[in-house]
């Protein structure tokens, strides 16, 4: 990193004894003091807003969350004893809702992340050609990315309605499902609701991930392909044997991103529910995710202490899964050679 130590004006070359504030040194002129401030303290002032904000609204809440999780923080029952000890965590282990939400979250995560990243790879390799109107193809891939999830989820919610939904109509054309009682009820069981929610997630993020992959693909040195062509590798082989291993760091990055995002999935499962205010994720929690359950426990049942404990649990789970996924991806995509 190159830093600039500006050649200071001659007058400020004067050495000031360490540890003593020069502010009241009579020999310093007003200009000198200003200069000192500019060189010495201003940089800290410039970066201070970030740190202040992060401490107040990022770090502190995260730590304070730990305190809250050890407390009885029930908004509608202030009579409970202040500390709860590990009650909230103990309760977690026996809570069927929690395990159900965990199961749903992982189910939806698998159905969304794997197809999402594979299709993104395909789209990226399509975009990685000499194209006419190149920019517009890329911009088109970002349409879902800029669309509010709230808006697109409402569209998909209609797509997946039982009687007149487009999903059932399309599937009916290829002989899956049917009409009337045979029609698929996308909100009736786990698998179908998971597929519906995962479809929304996939739709949203394929284009975005494709651009990440595309950027990495274009930074692969060209001579690698020369060598591959001499070896007689076709395009498909090139994709899997050269491109994928070469862009592995970005693949790992997207896996981590989609893990962090996928395990905190909230908006899609919330609004897919026709009775979204309840935050139950279906009449029997068919697709209730952990983030949704935290919201329900905290702001519908008004039990913030328990919600905080759940947040910690989710944090740990994300750490573990992100770590495991990184390892797994490193293995599968071959690593740099």
């Amino acid at each position: 990193m190159s830093t600039t130590r500006a050649a200071p004006a001659p007058s400020s070359r004067r050495a000031v004894p360490a540890g003593r504030s020069g502010g009241d040194d009579p020999r310093l002129t007003w200009r000198d003091r200003l200069y000192r401030f500019d060189m010495r303290y201003l940089p800290y002032l410039m970066i201070a807003p970030f740190f202040l904000l992060f401490i107040v609204f990022g770090l502190f809440p995260l730590l304070f969350n730990g305190v809250v999780s050890l407390r009885n923080y029930q908004l509608d029952d202030p009579t409970l004893p202040y500390w709860a000890g590990f009650d909230n965590f103990a309760r977690l282990f026996g809570d069927e809702d929690f395990w159900n939400a965990l199961y749903n979250t992982f189910g939806i995560f698998l159905l969304s992340s794997v197809p999402q990243l594979l299709l993104a790879l395909v789209v990226a390799s399509l975009l990685n050609r000499k194209l006419r109107a190149q920019t517009w193809w890329r911009v088109g891939a970002l349409l879902p990315y800029v669309t509010p999830i709230v808006a697109s989820t409402m569209v998909f919610s209609a797509f997946f309605s039982r009687t007149y939904g487009m999903a059932n109509w399309l599937l009916g054309m290829v002989g899956i499902g049917g009409s009337g009682d045979a029609a698929i009820d996308w909100r009736a069981d786990k698998l179908h609701s998971w597929i519906a929610v995962a479809t929304m997630v996939n739709w949203k993020w394929i284009g975005y991930n494709a651009l990440l992959y595309l950027a990495a693909m274009q930074s692969i040195p060209r001579d690698v392909y020369e060598a591959a062509a001499i070896d007689g590798a076709g395009p498909w082989r090139q994709l899997w044997r050269i491109t994928v291993p070469m862009i592995q760091p970005v693949i790992v990055f997207t896996v981590v991103l989609s893990t962090i995002g996928g395990l905190q999935l909230f908006t899609e499962p919330m609004l897919f529910d026709l009775n979204s205010q309840a935050a139950t994720g279906g009449p029997n929690g068919e697709w209730q995710t952990i983030a949704q359950l935290i919201y329900k426990v905290g702001w519908k049942d008004l039990d913030l202490g328990y919600a905080a404990a759940m947040s910690w649990a989710l944090f740990l789970i994300i750490l573990i899964v992100a770590g495991l996924n990184t390892l797994l991806t490193n293995r599968l995509s071959g690593g740099r050679r």
Partner: peptide, 14 residues
């Protein structure tokens, strides 16, 4: 790398 959504309960209290 910190998913700060996880401090959301405490953020609400703050």
């Amino acid at each position: 790398t910190v998913p700060n959504q996880l401090g959301i309960v405490a953020l609400y209290i703050v």
